[in-house]
Design a protein around this nucleic acid. Structure first.
Lengths: 340, 340
DNA sequence: CCTCGTGGTGGGAACGTTTCCCTGATCCTA
DNA sequence: TAGGATCAGGGAAACGTTCCCACCACGAGG
């Protein structure tokens, strides 16, 4: 009653004096229709404000035209860029994006799989850490649901994925700090359930080892990629005696927290403490000083991953693992340590 | 082929030795089924990994179980909170959230309406500035698509909505600054296409007028609710002679930009310049010093709006306009002006 | 003149559910 | 023990589209 009856394909067919089948052909741009008939049908469609019923289409084509985006509560800025890239690619396509933030991929695997199974998605985009979860991928394969992965660090050659080289990037960041003359360097790791955290730590340690610097365990703190977790970790590092002269945080949110923690202690960045972030998310330019960071092209990665997914959905062969370049952005949060 | 045939309701019916109708009743928790039959059916469902086909359900019930969230590129932190609140309420419901960021509601109204018509949504949540767009609302009413509005400033009594009092909030912020002793006060307005920008300006002017302070036009700059636009606006204000001793920004992103601009000029916040934000988004705690701001409960608002929408979808009568309280959070970005 | 393809068109089944309308069986009460 | 009420369950139609197949006219080639 409140919902006025929408025009159906047969209404259009009746008005244009053709069969429903023919209308369907016009709607889907199929051949075998005279130009004259085509225009007649188009007019009827406009007159009746006809829009095809997606549910009915989906039923017969077994397509829902929905693509899911699975991610696990990482930093807000990361989520936004992820969505931006995915939506950008989806613009103009019939597919729509359903957001599926999950609590914990590892702990509630069954729940997530049930969600995906019942959500009638055509495909899913897996952001970290779901993109490294073997069980989830196996289930998706079995269910015949195409997926693409963003920033996987393991199990490559397992369907389309877009990633960057976390090890090399972290190495580059550490080399920058070393080249400035820092010797006592702290690290704030990301969420342990993200494989990227380990990869980045490996890169950092390689660079430090090459420079002959040993990284004492007390200088490695763990966070969860969130501002608050970073704040706590940074406070612990700055309470050491002597405190580090530089801190490498594994994402920008935690790097921003490190800057805040330094301020609390009356320290100036970068004069008293150099801080390096990771991601080049919005936050790295929002805080003062703007953060030296690794540009991780999250938006591009999401765009490319979505692109590969659409290819698969169009029946083309699956793509492989794509690699995108990172970049060290030197801004104002790093400087040589105070002399002495 | 790639997509293994999913079990249908008749497969389950055959296995459990009942009719399809009975299985349907079990699935939907309807009465008139013996406990014994129920368990038999449930077992068959599990064995066959049966999940109802959403498209088929949607077809016959004319429901898509999709709810759209329409917003227009505001600050990232706002978007994230919006989504968080909406998703929070959706947890455990059958409905899924489709994100629909749009370019410009006013400029491309037709496009948006076409999008909504063809997207087969059951309902939409309208965030600003779409929530103030009369044409859009009229179309939605005509199409029989329920909607709820977040932070509308006009056209109340027009269906469910959740808002806060922008005028009063801005007034309170200005009073705080006045009470600290500031006389020369700058304002950075938000996006002119958002009605909230005007409302907040009104509140600010009322407070200043009451204190006998006149706000010269040169002290009012306009931004777009983004960091970059705020940076430009703040630079213009700080280039005035004499510069303001306090700046009221209409959201946190622009307030953060103001802090950055001040730093560029070698000014210290809050000693040389007080800055007030608006929203209490993540960014207000991420920057240093943490911003004095107005807490706008965006997440709660989205939650409540979604709640009202679900009520409507369940056939209950439409709710009215709900008002949520704001709160002035005094943090470390405001202080009395320097003596002299 | 008859066949054979071919481009345009329509008829009818199918997709997987729910819902309307039944039929029996069981139960309670007078 | 009869009467109605309640309950468990089933058959068939409906939702709006696409797809397989058949049909028709028409021109070319034999």
């Amino acid at each position: 009653m409140s919902r006025p009856k929408r025009a159906t394909i047969v209404d259009v067919a009746r008005m244009a004096e053709v069969s429903a089948k023919t209308v369907s052909r016009v709607v889907n741009n199929e051949p075998h229709v005279t130009e004259a008939v085509k225009t007649r049908v188009r007019e009827a469609m406009r007159a009746l404000r006809y829009h095809p019923n997606v549910a009915a289409q989906g039923l017969v084509r077994s397509r829902s035209y929905l693509i899911g985006l699975v991610y696990e509560k990482p930093s807000p800025s990361y989520v936004v860029e992820l969505q931006k890239g995915a939506l950008e690619r989806l613009h103009g396509e019939r597919f729509r994006l359903v957001v599926l933030p999950v609590e914990s991929v590892t702990e509630r695997e069954d729940e997530i799989i049930a969600l995906l199974r019942s959500a009638a998605l055509d495909a899913v985009l897996l952001a970290p850490p779901a993109s490294d979860h073997a069980g989830l991928m196996a289930e998706l394969r079995e269910a015949g649901m195409p997926f693409a992965r963003i920033s996987p660090t393991r199990l490559l050659g397992n369907g389309p994925s877009v990633a960057m080289d976390d090890v090399a990037a972290a190495q580059e960041a550490a080399e920058h700090i070393v080249s400035l003359g820092h010797k006592r360097i702290g690290v704030i790791k990301g969420d342990p359930s993200h494989a990227a955290s380990d990869a980045r730590l490996v890169g950092t340690m390689q660079a430090l080892a090459k420079a002959g610097i040993t990284l004492h365990p007390e200088l490695i703190e763990s966070g969860l990629f969130t501002f608050d977790s970073g704040l706590a970790a940074a406070r612990r590092l700055l309470a050491l005696d002597p405190p580090p002269t530089a801190i490498l945080a594994q994402n920008d949110d935690m790097a921003a927290a490190t800057v805040a923690a330094a301020r609390e202690c009356g320290l100036h960045v970068p004069e008293d403490l150099s801080v390096v972030g990771f991601d080049d998310s919005d936050i790295s330019r929002v805080v003062w000083p703007p953060l030296t960071t690794i540009r991780q092209p999250v938006e591009d990665m999401a765009y490319r991953a979505m692109d590969m997914l659409l290819h698969v959905l169009k029946g083309e062969p699956e793509g492989g693992d794509i690699h995108l370049a990172h970049e060290l952005l030197i801004r104002r949060s790093t400087a040589p340590p105070r002399a002495g």
